[in-house]
Design a binder for these strands. Structure first.
Length: 111
RNA sequence: UGAGUAAGUUGGGCAGUCGCGGCAAGGCGCGAGCCUUGGUGAGGAAAGUCCGAGCACCACAGGGCAAGGGUGCCAGAUAACGUCUGGUGGAGGCGACUCUAAGGAUAGUGUAACAGAAAACAACCGCCGGAUUUCCGGUAAGGAUGGAAAGGCGAGGUAAGAGCUCACCGGCGGUAUGGAGACAUACCGGCCGUAUAAACCCCACCCGGUGCAACACCAACAGGAGAGAGAAGCCGGCCCGGCACUUCUCCGACCGGUGGCUAAAGCCGUGCAGCGAUGUGCGGCGUAGAUAGAUGGCUGUCCCAGACAGAACUCGGCUUACAGACUUGCUCACACC
């Protein structure tokens, strides 16, 4: 199984916000854009509005884990950034999973 | 048993399963890297970044003074501290115990709103004496104001009063004794104008600045500087010279890579010294090191249903947040013997 490649550079995030498509729900916002690497890259943004360091870590892990589990069903060749909104602080695994599937579906990222 | 007080420990457990970061071993690959196995992987506050150190660079390179900042009862502990320990004075509590920014008001300056006559060379009312009515003098006992009113309270004394005199208490100064010291106790003296120094200030002691995004090394592109050679391009009739080309060296240095980066004034047990902080001997352990940032998800199960909260160079403290569970010492009340 391939490891999840992450997006790191700030300019890449900004490029996605500026040029990519996006869909939002109450919990999450997804930005996406076709890239030229032939594989997917994931970036996760959790702002300080969500909570303290522990809460942000938990949210980041939830999103990462859910993405990992559904990665096989996602079309290749996209950069995706998932932004957590404030309400994610109270969300559990299943809520996160539902939101992520719904948004990815709307974005046309699922096979 | 109840109430309290001080100190300490712990900070969901177990099983299955899917994952993540270092490390080690083995394997595959020219290599970048990949795979397998093993072991390891957040806190008591990791937090706030408030003090003190190590370490790094910059500045000064010796010393003194000034400025600015900090500390402020005494003694000790410590690498150091604004921390800690043991004391002293003061405050609170029946008590165990707790709290205390606790030098100097006789170096000087300032301030003390409102009220009040007066807030520090006190006379408004009152009281007493003399004039006789409107004034002069004495007086801090009483009234009234205030957070504070000229040591407190009682007696003597007096025209009325007053530390004017005396006893006790308090404060100040001196002497003696005890103590390492802060201080304590006793005696003597005169009765000495309050509070405020987290007001200026005075005194004593201490202090250079910036921080791991420090700093060191490796380094691509652009750019800059220098050196050498050439018969060969351009300017030129030719030489010199200049420009361009090529080679080398140096500077520079984004993104990036490596180091710094974890063994440390370390932790556990125990003996000795000390009231204690702590020191020291012996034995054992050697315990995260990421770089967009690793500790998580799911399922089952148990219980008292899980608080505050996430390492980012490293230590010693302080401060703040915190559900619950547990241990020990001591105090008070009640009951029993």
């Amino acid at each position: 199984m391939k490891k999840t490649v992450s997006i790191r550079q700030n300019h890449e995030f900004r490029s996605l916000y500026y040029k990519g498509g996006s869909k939002a729900s109450g919990l999450l916002v997804v930005y996406f854009k076709k890239n030229r690497y032939g594989q997917n890259r994931l970036g996760i943004t959790v702002s300080k509005k969500v909570g303290n360091a522990v809460t942000r870590n938990r949210v980041r892990r939830l999103i990462k884990e859910n993405y990992r589990l559904m990665e096989a069903e996602v079309r290749d060749g996209f950069d995706v950034v998932v932004v957590a909104r404030a309400r994610m602080a109270e969300a559990d695994f299943h809520a996160c999973r539902a939101a992520l599937y719904s948004l990815f579906g709307k974005c046309g990222l699922l096979r």
